[in-house]
Amino acid sequence: MELRTLEYFVAVAEERSFTKAAVRCHVVQPAISQQIQALEKELGEPLFERLPRQVVLTSGGAALLPHARACLAAAASAVLEFADRSGLLGGSFALGTVGGLEGTVIPRLLGEYHRRYPQVAVSLIGASSPSLLAKVRDGEIDAAVVAGPPDGEPAVVTSRVLLEDRIVAVLPAGGRPANRPMTFDEAVRSPVISYGPDSGVHAFIRAAFAAKGLRLDIAYATNDVALQVALVAERIGIALTSHASPVLAADPRFVVVPVEPAIRLRKVFVWRQGTRPSAPLRAFLDLWTELSGRGELSEPASRDEAGTGAATGG
């Protein structure tokens, strides 16, 4: 029993026609018929019932079909595996990205990935977290970096934590000592500058205030953290934003203070569950594991320690 014969068998079963199967497999129709007849002789029973306008599987054919598909899938997987090992990996890798990944490990990973697998066509798709989650769920992109939803990622995706973060308040300079936290009650008494409803971070902030029975009205909504703090510098209001953003580095125009109670969030790397990841995605995940194991992917120090850090948005 040869793989090519099983390929012909699956094609006839799915097309319900020897002629259409021949077109699909790029061979002449008699070649398909001869291979199927030989397979039926080898197995000792007919696999198809030949009707005037189509062919249908017999009980024997129906029993063989899942095994044939599994054999073909295993062979294809083996080819991809050895293509990876030989450095001949090709194809495409579509990665969704939210804003503010310049200070995370993602650029380092993509750089090494490009050097190892130059034949892979990498495309970056920028969008909000909810939109990217939907694209991963629907199979439109291979993976994405998103703000993890407050109630967890959908069951249809697998995730790996990229970054732990928290929300801080940014106020005009001179209005408050940096070591004095801002409560939710104080925050709602000022015009608030924060993320828009299309941002995954927005949901974390809204949920935290709602849990305390407070309504949060965002006067100026933008997912651009640099613009948020520029508005703070103009004394329009206070910003509730990502602590990890590098634009919060020491600046005489504003002061950054903790928020109490803390609003914690995660940036996660997600991909679709239930299907075998594509070879380019598997290579990316394996590279991440390899470099992490060698200690080459340590996150930048937090802003408290080094004056900068990884950015979070979307």
Rank of each mutant, 00 (worst) to 15 (best):
R69I: 15
T58K: 03
I141G: 03
D251C: 14
T289M: 10
R253F: 02
V268Q: 07
G175W: 01
P150V: 05
V192M: 08
G87M: 04
S302L: 14
G148Y: 00
K135E: 14
V201C: 09
Q228A: 11
G274Q: 02
W288Y: 09
A121S: 09
S92M: 11
V192D: 06
L51D: 05
P197K: 05
S92Y: 06
A173E: 10
E81I: 03
H202K: 02
A38C: 03
A310M: 10
A38G: 06
P46L: 09
A169L: 05
A21H: 04
V270L: 12
A226P: 00
K212A: 15
A78D: 10
K20W: 07
Q37Y: 02
V10E: 02
A143P: 02
R115A: 14
V27R: 12
F284I: 13
L291N: 07
V229Q: 01
E234Q: 05
R160F: 05
A226H: 11
G126D: 00
R137I: 14
D151K: 02
P280W: 06
T5Q: 05
G99D: 04
I193Y: 08
A70C: 01
I167R: 01
I141K: 03
G148V: 07
G293D: 06
P300I: 03
L88T: 07
E290L: 09
M182P: 03
A62K: 11
C71P: 03
A173Y: 05
R206W: 01
T19V: 15
P277H: 06
P177E: 05
R272K: 14
L109Y: 00
V161L: 13
V105D: 00
T275S: 12
S17G: 10
K41I: 06
V201Y: 04
L43K: 09
G152D: 05
S245P: 13
T5P: 10
I205G: 06
A208D: 08
G100Y: 02
G61D: 04
G200T: 13
H26F: 11
V170T: 03
S33N: 03
V28H: 10
H243C: 09
L109M: 11
S128I: 04
G100E: 15
A62N: 11
I193P: 13
S86T: 07
S190A: 04
T19N: 09
T19Y: 15
C25H: 02
T312C: 13
I106V: 15
K135Y: 10
R50C: 00
V156D: 14
T275N: 11
H114S: 12
R235Q: 15
S245I: 15
D84I: 14
T308Y: 08
T58W: 02
D304F: 03
V268D: 13
A239D: 06
Q37I: 07
T5F: 00
I218D: 09
R16G: 12
P130M: 06
T275V: 15
K20N: 15
R24G: 09
M182I: 10
R137D: 02
I141W: 03
S86H: 08
L171P: 01
P150D: 03
S129V: 12
F18Q: 11
F48G: 01
W288T: 15
A219Q: 10
A169Y: 00
D151F: 02
V268P: 02
G99Q: 10
D138P: 12
P181K: 04
